[in-house]
Design a protein around this nucleic acid. Structure first.
Lengths: 418, 418
DNA sequence: AGACAAAGTTCAAGACCTGAACTATGTGTA
DNA sequence: TACACATAGTTCAGGTCTTGAACTTTGTCT
């Protein structure tokens, strides 16, 4: 043991980026506010927006006019059913408004989706990539094809591309951001955006035009989608598919200030001196509650090998829900460990809600029960309600919807830049 | 096990409090920006502020004039040593500017401190409260006396009170905020602000004047102070005095958007099926690394009973640092558990820095070493540097300084309301 | 004493929002 | 059919703020 005083040093202080505000910043903010209402509400009129945002009607008139000029908003032909007085003119996202591209890489598919700023899906291409272990290049080729296919259809429809977001089923980090050495996917550290840029003409064109594509992990955007769906200020998300991941969403009042912390929940060492994990630690959550472990213990390993993980996990869930005692017993053990993990994290971030995604969504009630059972006295204080553990209702599209939401929040910060 | 579908429901969605911006909001923001520079910099002139903030010199002139009118800023007589040209007129916080009151309750003292917005200490009163277990009312009386004493001195000096912040050595939460059932302090759930209001004329007067006193836990404000001192975007703070607490600071770019999550690190159940803890769980960190456990194991229990916890812990640290093998052995075990706890939390919030406060600050290098030793392969990816574990350099005043900083950040959001 | 340099002030111009007056466009009733 | 009424949307004067350039102030240097 060393006992030298300071020893190591802290990272450099980030430059105090405190910016002054001027009148144009007000305009930008309010434009985002108005456009957000147009996207959110189903055909709101100017008067509705004024009421909802607190802006004066005069200001809304001017802001909407600017958004219409920018080609983002249209006056809908459909005049809302009025009561008395002049009928309201419903506002909608312009039919030819720029779109958002999401490229998603999950356990066995490469999917590209184009959507409107409001989250409506315009086009989708999904291809099985066969999961060639250890070779990101092959997978990237499949993803690039899907992306270019969707981008081509958008070009044919006369839509510009406002944002590109690449979602990958693995942890992500660093600057510039890249896919990290992942123990589940068996990749090394990969500059996925860089690889994709060389294969996808659409991505290359987007970057040449000054766009800045983003790379995110599926857990963080899925958590964002769950937060939008279920609410709450602080949300803890745990997802189990072929591995276990998670994220914490902290919403600063409104959603636009939301911050997402990716959390490596699957590799939380919850069993001291437990089984050695591929990540190098001992007793990680995946070693006691990982999908492959559950399948092997409940005799579904062969099915997984034949039909794939997704099918096997569905079978497992069915067995548990139909009362198969063997499967139920395996699941009880796993649910206990998941509940313990959630408890540990809950003590450090105090979530208002906990959401389970992936195949555990259907079994969330069990985890909720166990989670409540292990609450310490201190957390039972009446003023601090225990967070409910909910099953995701978003299904497989959670990550996709979250990525779209993420793109939208980003673009609303400066609508005229779209 | 129940398997009913949804089962429980999520908490109500917070009302989307997205506010429109108008020109007065710009003014408020920029006033805070300028006042912040005056507080931060040592006698900066208008031109310096213009350069640092990006505001035009004309705007700074106007903003400073308004702050001077409000009695917050003064032109210092001390003209800075100039080179060429007209000498700069240094700006400082006004000599009679309103002050901030901090009332701090720790393991054995009740302390009240008055400070300027810049953090300079104006008055302090500290009294031993004898720690009468189970009786908050007696302690509150001592704290109220200290607070009123300091407030009286401020009144005599002609200072208004801009903010009152009560810091308590225990977890805090709920709405309205209160001290939670705490296992270390042996209190129940206490409306500390309410109790204090009935005993302290200063607090009652402050509230009558429209002020909103705050109640925070020492760990969260101490974490804020450490963050200000050491930097980084995400900071994980663990503090061990008579108990173990912690907090996570997330700075959204600049410091003013910082968010602090109180974390009950001492009650993280890190040893499954371990010793039963007073909180109701098993194997909490305090049961294996709590100060009283360490003292008992190293034969310092009697000293603690005689001379108090602080003295005994100092003795323990000295023994460890001077190579007493018994103490060192005890500490090695505790340091290992602390490092494991930090590792678990680090996997969920990915801090840039970890800071240890309390008596472990002096032994941080050991924890740092162990923390690095248990990093899994995945975290050794070159793009994700392992967070350094640093010992606090702020000492016993960390919570106090953090509370002052918290008050300042709050007041800078609307300087004219001061 | 006069040139020079930098700090600080003043003010016209422009960007925005508010609030009130005004116009547009329906429904309900006589 | 006509007229009152209610609600949506527009226009515009007034007020708040910042910018940027011209101007004043107050020193040092030659």
């Amino acid at each position: 043991m060393t006992r030298t005083g300071a020893g190591r040093t802290a990272p450099p202080r980030p430059t105090m980026a405190i910016m002054p505000l001027a009148t144009p910043d007000v305009r930008r903010h309010n434009l985002g506010l108005v456009l957000g209402r147009v996207l959110e509400g189903a055909g709101e009129a100017r008067a509705d927006i004024a009421g909802a945002t607190g802006l004066s009607r005069g200001a809304v008139t001017s802001l909407v006019a600017e958004l219409i000029d920018a080609g983002l908003v249209e006056e809908s032909d459909v005049v809302a059913p009025a009561g008395m007085g002049r009928p309201r003119t419903a506002l909608t996202l312009a039919a030819a408004a720029p779109c958002v591209l999401i490229a998603l890489l999950d356990a066995d598919h490469a999917t590209a989706v184009a959507g409107t700023l409001a989250g409506e899906e315009l086009a989708r291409t999904s291809r099985s990539h066969g999961r060639p272990m250890g070779d990101p290049a092959a997978i990237v080729g499949v993803l690039a094809d899907a992306l270019d296919d969707v981008a081509g259809r958008m070009a044919a429809a006369g839509r510009r591309i406002a944002d590109v977001c690449v979602v990958v089923w693995a942890p992500v980090g660093g600057t510039p951001v890249r896919v990290l050495a992942d123990t589940d996917l068996a990749w090394g550290e990969v500059d996925l955006l860089g690889l994709l840029r060389t294969r996808s003409t659409a991505l290359a064109a987007f970057e040449r035009a000054g766009g800045e594509p983003r790379l995110v992990s599926d857990a963080e955007v899925a958590a964002l989608a769950e937060h939008a769906a279920v609410g709450g200020d602080t949300l803890l998300y745990l997802k189990a598919d072929s591995g276990i991941g998670g994220a914490v969403v902290l919403a600063a009042g409104d959603d636009s200030g939301a911050r997402v912390l990716p959390a490596a929940l699957g590799h939380l060492p919850v069993v001291p001196d437990g089984v050695r994990c591929a990540c190098g630690q001992h007793g990680c959550l995946v070693t006691v509650a990982g999908p492959d472990v559950l399948l092997a213990r409940s005799g579904l390993g062969a099915l997984a090998a034949d039909e794939g993980l997704t099918v096997a996990l569905e079978a497992f869930v069915t067995q548990v829900r139909t009362g198969d005692e063997s499967a139920a017993s395996v699941w009880r053990g796993a649910a206990r460990e998941i509940a313990r993990t959630l408890q540990i994290v809950a003590l450090t971030v105090a979530p208002d809600v906990i959401v389970l995604g992936g195949f555990v969504a259907a079994l969330a009630a069990d985890v909720d029960e166990m989670f409540r059972a292990i609450q310490p006295r201190i957390a039972h204080a009446p003023v601090l309600p225990v967070a409910p553990v909910l099953g995701s209702t978003l299904g497989a599209d959670a990550a996709l919807r979250g990525a779209q939401r993420d793109a939208r929040l980003r673009l609303l910060a400066d609508p005229l830049a779209i």
